[in-house]
Nucleic acid binder design. Structure first.
Length: 825
RNA sequence: GCGGGCGUGGCGGAACUGGUAGACGCGCCGGAUUUAGGUUCCGGUGACGAAAGUCGUGGGGGUUCGAGUCCCUUCGCCCGCACCA
């Protein structure tokens, strides 16, 4: 007896068990098929999944199921980005060991993810905190070291005083630590670096090949790499200061050299420090510059300030022409050489500075087709905007009349031939904003850097046979800092080379290292001898479709792109671009509620809708509260919805359907209970409609009747047009449109059933051709909706008497002759 | 400042290379069913109009037989980067 309502609570676990037992989702079973690798950014095991995860993984699952149906061998794995600070913080507060905390969270989240019915290959599960994983990462580190991609150098680092660790430049936002929010201090430390700058050009060029990435992300990376072509140029000092007799600057505008009015150096520039030694006032100014914040507000409001060092620089083309040397607050030590020459007429900052210190300005470039009288100013104080466009050179001696490009070339060519202190005075240089990636972190819960420091031999790699260097379990978190540093038994070892007493490197790797190669590990997740076999990498990489949040547009994605190249150069034969297609999904947002005592969670709120609009009331006492803006789900605003609650009351299919419908996947989707109910109704409707269709459809396996009548042909057209449209929409990742089209198809089928029922054809069996068309329509509906709502699809499929599992059924193919529109004049 | 995205009913949003604007859903209105429903089913729903019809894709202009879509111009919102020489 067919149940009137679809019972998700019984059906969902049943089908998940069936899939698992049949190992439907394990990759590599049929390697003759073409491969398709779909990957969603793996989660941090915080303990609970949130709606963002549901959305992210539902999208990936639609793609995985769709591709599987299209005949691909699909790799769709899942794992855990399991190292990181929260585990240590939890350890400090809750007295639980980070490992215990992390693995418990993984278990809890895994159960939640499983309840969503995702078509994941769990046999490939990895956690970055497993020695099985991080041991291979240590191997990679040593491979990179051998390949010259790892460096150890003393450098100024960003020190987070709250988290007691070093941060990469990418992890400093507005001068504050990205996690702690603490003001970052500068410290001089010896650190391990990955030489990502060696790959700057390649990483930049590679962006052009990524035509399935969002333009926005490619641009963000391009800006981050920050390539600029220019000239390194040395100014001789009129009189030496101690040993120093020159200043080197970097410029992208050597053409404006005859418009130079001053040279400016950063407050941290060695020359500034030297000059400050003899001048208390200059020293005070240098100190002041240090304290100016680098926040957005500070930069916008900061005046251009400077201080004359008293030094004078000689113009490269005219030794009788001296330029004052200023320390200036707008010159950055960590870009270029930390020194510039200022051309006020053609650079806004230089103009502001020049006006403040009365340094003058000479216009040396005039746009073409402009009346000189309209362009040339009598006094530079009349200049409001520096002209940085194209034109021809004026007031520039031998450069006069040349274009900007020609003048750049001319100046570079001349200065490359000019000698200054035994070397060419100028040198063409491509400069990048990108810095080397400092990976040392003074934390416990991370991948140990596999190095032993020996007084005689220096830093010695841990021999391959001793990998993995495992984290010790017996550590304490009763004081700040790195517990590894306070663990003598672990720390003190003998040197692998000379056998003398030595100590282990106690720093661990930045957790971004862990996530920079996990996509590669998934191809061969349990390989105990190497990160992954060449065969496995060759079989599966690159990832065909990667899905995740825009927040990783720079860090994670750039590091991963770097790692793929580094692994290639270390002999793993990886392809350069790890992610062929990238999709950045929008957030799940929810309206907020505020009562007299602050934010109220949706679970405590009852919504009443009427002609006066929607109103919110507290369930507890019935008092009315206000409805606020729709915002990103967050604990602070209490506007979160727990996926578990939704799955409990509506089932996984409903949750999946809703996060995929309504909004385009790259935009935010507003979660609302009304919307969830809409999805719920459709899941129920699928079941009901399948029953109705089953009543008028031919039995499974009925061959196409020779004679197709008009009514049947119309129905087949409806079916095949739906196939074509839904297929196209899923391929284009327009899941919202795909679902809309499926609902439309369902509406059309309802109408068709009504029609035949009214016409009386249904009772006692419809005619053969129509019964066949209904059979086709019913199966098609189930097949099309299966990637989104896989459980109910299986239930309907079984009810229709379909062969095998929907999860294994091939995707329907649209008949072109049925898809073409009838001509309308 | 530089860059990216967007502007369509009460709301989220459809509309392929120009071809019936508003698919699909939410909400709302009406009806039905039920011992019982915040969760079921059916119908209606851009605006104005009694109707025929007219007007409608941020504003203005243009190309075209035909424009949400193409061109010019203008207004507004969101996001990212930012003293990078």
């Amino acid at each position: 007896m067919r149940a009137e309502r679809y019972n998700f609570a019984a059906a969902e676990p049943k089908w998940r068990k069936t899939w698992e037992e049949a190992q439907v989702f394990e990759a590599g079973a049929a390697s003759k098929k073409p491969k398709y690798y779909v990957l969603e950014m793996f989660p941090y095991p915080s303990g609970r999944i949130h709606m963002g995860h549901v959305r992210n993984y539902s999208m990936g699952d639609v793609i995985a199921r769709f591709r599987r149906a299209k005949g691909y061998d699909v790799l769709h794995p899942m794992g855990w980005d399991a190292f990181g600070l929260p585990a240590e913080n939890a350890a400090m507060q809750g007295k639980r060991h980070p490992a215990e905390w992390t693995y418990a969270n993984i278990e809890a989240m895994k159960a939640q993810l499983k309840s969503l019915g995702l078509s994941l290959d769990w046999s490939r599960e990895i956690a970055t905190c497993d020695a099985e994983y991080y041991g291979r990462q240590q191997q990679l580190f040593l491979d990179f070291l051998r390949a010259g991609i790892v460096d150890r150098k003393s450098s100024k680092v960003n020190w987070d005083p709250v988290d007691h660790t070093v941060l990469a430049n990418e992890q400093v936002i507005d001068g504050r630590g990205w996690r702690s929010g603490a003001l970052v201090e500068q410290r001089e430390l010896t650190q391990w670096f990955f030489k990502i700058t060696n790959y700057a050009e390649e990483l930049l060029e590679g962006l052009d090949t990524l035509d399935r990435w969002p333009e926005k992300v490619r641009l963000m990376q391009r800006n981050w790499i920050g390539r600029s072509e220019g000239l390194l140029l040395r100014f001789a000092l009129a009189a030496p200061l101690g040993e120093a007799r020159e200043i080197e600057v970097f410029t992208t505008r050597p053409d404006t050299l005859f418009g130079a009015k001053f040279v400016a150096i950063a407050a941290d520039h060695p020359l500034a420090k030297q000059a400050a030694a003899d001048s208390p006032k200059l020293a005070a100014f240098v100190e002041e510059c240090r304290h100016i914040g680098t926040s957005v507000a500070a930069i916008e409001t900061a005046e251009k300030k400077g201080f004359d060092t008293g030094l004078r620089a000689l113009h490269p083309f005219d030794a009788s022409w001296t330029l004052p040397v200023y320390v200036a607050n707008f010159v950055l030590m960590d870009y270029g050489t930390g020194a510039i020459f200022g051309c006020p007429a053609h650079d806004q900052r230089d103009l502001d500075f020049s006006k403040a210190y009365k340094l003058g300005a000479t216009q040396v470039i005039r746009p073409e087709g402009v009346d000189p009288d309209d362009f040339i100013v009598l006094s530079y104080l009349e200049l409001v905007e520096a002209f940085d466009g194209d034109g021809r050179l004026i007031n520039s001696r031998f450069l006069d009349g040349l274009t900007v490009a020609e003048a750049k070339e001319e100046v570079a060519a001349r200065l490359e031939k000019t000698d200054l202190f035994g070397a060419p005075q100028g040198k063409r240089k491509v400069n990048y904003k990108l810095r080397d990636w400092g990976v040392s972190r003074q934390r416990y819960w991370g991948c140990p850097i596999p190095i032993i420091h020996c007084e005689s031999c220096g830093p010695v790699p841990v021999p391959a046979k001793d990998l993995p260097v495992k984290l010790p379990q017996d550590v304490s978190f009763d004081q700040p800092g790195n517990p590894l540093d306070r663990h003598p038994a672990w720390k003190n070892v003998s040197c692998p080379t000379c056998g003398k007493p030595a100590r282990r490197e106690t720093d661990t790797m930045d957790t971004f290292v862990d996530s920079s190669w996990y996509y590669a590990r998934f191809t061969d997740p349990h390989n105990a001898g190497e990160p992954a076999s060449k065969d496995a990498l060759a079989r599966w990489l690159p990832v065909d479709q990667y899905i995740g949040g825009i927040e990783h547009a720079i860090l994670h994605l750039l590091y991963s792109r770097f790692f793929a190249r580094a692994m290639r150069d270390a002999g793993y034969g990886l392809v350069a671009e790890p992610f062929q297609g990238l999709f950045t999904q929008g957030m799940v947002v929810h309206e907020t509620y505020k009562g007299p005592d602050g934010w109220v969670s949706p679970a405590e709120v009852r919504i009443e809708a009427g002609e006066g609009g929607r109103r919110a009331f507290l369930i507890s006492d019935g008092s009315e509260i206000s409805i606020g803006d729709v915002e990103k789900m967050s604990k602070s605003k209490k506007n979160t919805v727990d996926p578990d609650d939704i799955i409990q009351s509506y089932g996984a299919d409903t949750a999946r359907l809703f996060v995929l419908s309504d909004s385009p996947p790259d935009r935010d989707v507003i979660w609302s209970d009304e919307g969830a109910q809409g999805a719920w109704r459709f899941v129920q409707r699928l079941w009901r409609l399948t029953g109705e269709l089953g009543r008028v459809a031919a039995p499974a396996g009925t061959p196409t009747p020779a004679d197709i009548g008009e009514r049947a042909r119309k129905l087949r057209q409806v079916t095949h047009r739906a196939i074509a449209a839904v297929t196209e929409n899923i391929e284009g990742l327009r899941f919202n449109s795909a679902i809309a089209r499926i609902r439309e198809f369902a509406n059309e089928l309802s109408a068709a059933v009504d029609e035949v029922t009214e016409a009386g054809v249904a009772e006692g069996g419809v005619v053969e051709d129509l019964a066949f068309a209904f059979r086709e329509a019913a199966e098609t509906l189930v097949l099309l909706v299966a990637p989104m709502t896989p459980h109910v699809a299986e239930e309907c499929w079984a009810d229709l008497g379909g062969a095998g599992l929907v999860a294994r059924a091939p995707w329907p193919v649209a008949d072109p002759t049925l898809v073409v529109q009838d001509l309308i004049s």
